[in-house]
Structure formats: structure tokens, C-alpha cells
Simulated assay, not measured.
Amino acid sequence: MEIGKLKASDLEKLIFKNIKHKRSEILTDPKIGGDCAVLDFGDKVAYISSDPITGATEELGKLAVNINCNDIATAGIEPVGLMLTILAPEGTKAEEIERVVSDAHAECEKLNVSIMGGHTEITKVVNRMVVSVTAIGIGKKEDYTKRGKVEPGDCLILTKGAGIEGTGIIAYEKSEEIRKNLGEQTLKEAKNMLDKISVVREGIIASPYVKGMHDVTEGGILGAIWEVSEFYGLGSEIYREKIEIADCTRAICDHFNINPLKLISSGSMLLTADPLKGSKIVEILKSEGIESQIIGKFIKDNSKSIISGNFVEEISEPESDELYRVV
């Protein structure tokens, strides 16, 4: 099997079909494109999400906190707490573990999130440090149930742009190569991309106006579009020229011969909205300092395509992220 998260078809065959027992308090089933599990607590619901960091060796605490809090933000609420697990290989220094926790705590302070507990151990099972987080948020049950139905013609809005997280990770992992070939300024700009990986603000700001939200992770923009299309049982048309790609992302992707639209992009949120509200949402986000673009729409049939001029290309099921071709 390929490096990276399992393909959707493998998830269906190997994971989902073997999960059969469900308690009445659980409101959601595991599903392609779903970001959180939802638990019923009377007039409130709890949103829970879990993800590890396996594609990086630097900025582990920052990445682990943000990618999990981003999942909670797709529900339009603030994350409140998280559990932090660190699995470190033999030979790990005490200060390396302390740095991960310190970095994680700094991100939690920015987001007003508490580290509630977790687990830390040194183990022969891993050959480099793996950090995993489970995040939780609390919302009103009425907000969970009132989202509008996603329909053909609804627009897709992308915040920020493509390849945000992947650009930052590659900059840290391949810093000398980038400095030598692309220059110090490109390296600096690329590393700074990791300061943009939170989507908590845009999730909360956009929530009253959208029908759904999905954060962009492994598989990049095209992977996220494929996933939300599957989630809603619709097709999609995307316009390539509408997708923002930062200069440093473009330079790094050209250098390593990878596709920025298939590069992991925590920091980007994919919003689904009534087409009559699309421009308003873009304006509201801009007034809060968050750039976004309407990049396409849902269609009735199940085809998924990206259009560039007169060229139409199918968006296929996401495979191993472009990041793993570099790091």
C-alpha cells in the first residue's frame, strides 16, 4: 500500500465495512469527507477529531494542534481541549520532547484551547517522533441540525489557497536545497506558510452563512473537492484559474516537480454555500483579513472535473500526497 492516509476505496473495504456496532448517543457514522464524530449530550453535542503528524520532523507540536483544531472548526465552533500523544524513538533527548509540548502549548494559547492530558513514551516501534492529537469542541444541538441541504448549483469557496501546509513542511525538511536553488527569501516565505495553517477563525466567521465546511489536508485541494463531492453525493466543476497559489508554493512545486493542487494544505477551508450568498461570504472573510475565492460549484451528476481554459480534466480519487514524493 502507498505511503499516506488510505485511499477512500481502501477505507470503505478495510475500515468502514468492519465498523458495525453503534451506540444511540453517536450521531454520525465514519464517512469519506466527514471531519468530526458527533456525540449527543441532550441540548448540546460534542465534536471529536483525531489525527497524527507523520509527514514532518519539525514543528510537530504546531502542526498536531492545528490540524485537529481545524477539523473541529469545520463545525463552526471553537475547539476547547485536546489529548496529546507523543511516541518517540530510542535516543530521543528530553529537550526534544519538551520542545514539542512547548510548541503545542503555544498554539493552544493562541486558540484558547487546553491540553487536557495524553500519553508520552519512548518506543522501538517508531524510527522518528510521531505526535497524535484528539481534539474536542462543544456546540448547540440546534446548530448541528439546522444546516441547509447541499444541492446542485451550490458554490464552492476556498480560503487562502493551495499547498499551504505542504509548502511549509517542505521548507523545513529541505531548507538547504531550497536556499541553494530558490534563494533565502523564498525559503523564508515558505517557512512562514506554517503560520497560516489554522482555519479556526474562518470556520467560526463563515459558519452562519454556509451549508458545510471541509478542511483541506492530505490530497490537497483536488483531494478535498473529491471528498466533499462524495460526501454530498454530487459532482463538481472547478475552475483552475480561480485557485490561489502563492509564489513560494509555485516555486517549490516547480523545483520538486509536484502538483500544488495535490499537496497537503491545512490552512485552507473549503466552504459550501448557496450561490446567492457566495460573494457575500467572500466579502465578509476579506473584511476579517482572510482571502477567499469562489472556485467552482456542485453539479447534479457524479462527475468531478477541473477546467482550465478549454481543457477539462477529471478529478480522480486522491492517492498518496505529493508531500511524500519530497520528504
Rank of each mutant, 00 (worst) to 15 (best):
I295G: 05
G4L: 05
A171G: 01
G34D: 08
I115D: 04
A273C: 11
V133L: 03
S292A: 14
A171E: 01
G34C: 10
L271R: 07
G34F: 10
I290C: 07
L234M: 06
T272F: 09
N181K: 15
S266C: 13
Y47K: 05
I307A: 07
K110N: 06
V65M: 04
L82M: 09
I299N: 11
K22W: 07
V101R: 13
A94F: 12
E173P: 02
E78K: 12
K174R: 14
I86M: 03
E319G: 13
N18A: 09
T167M: 03
L222S: 09
E165K: 14
D215A: 05
L285G: 02
S24Q: 13
G34S: 14
R23E: 14
A106W: 05
L87F: 13
N302I: 09
K22R: 15
S198Y: 02
S50L: 03
K62D: 04
D301P: 00
I258V: 11
E151M: 12
S102L: 11
E95H: 15
I225S: 07
N181W: 01
V199A: 10
V131Q: 04
S266Q: 13
K280Q: 12
V125H: 14
N127H: 14
N259K: 08
V125R: 15
T85Y: 14
A75C: 12
K20P: 01
E107H: 05
L276R: 15
K300N: 13
G183I: 04
E12C: 06
L87Q: 13
S198K: 08
F16P: 00
K5D: 12
C36F: 04
P152R: 11
L270T: 03
G212I: 01
G118C: 05
P79R: 12
N192C: 10
D71R: 15
G76H: 06
L14G: 09
V126S: 10
V130P: 00
L276D: 15
T123G: 07
L187K: 04
D51P: 00
P260R: 12
L194S: 03
L6S: 10
C248N: 11
S265E: 00
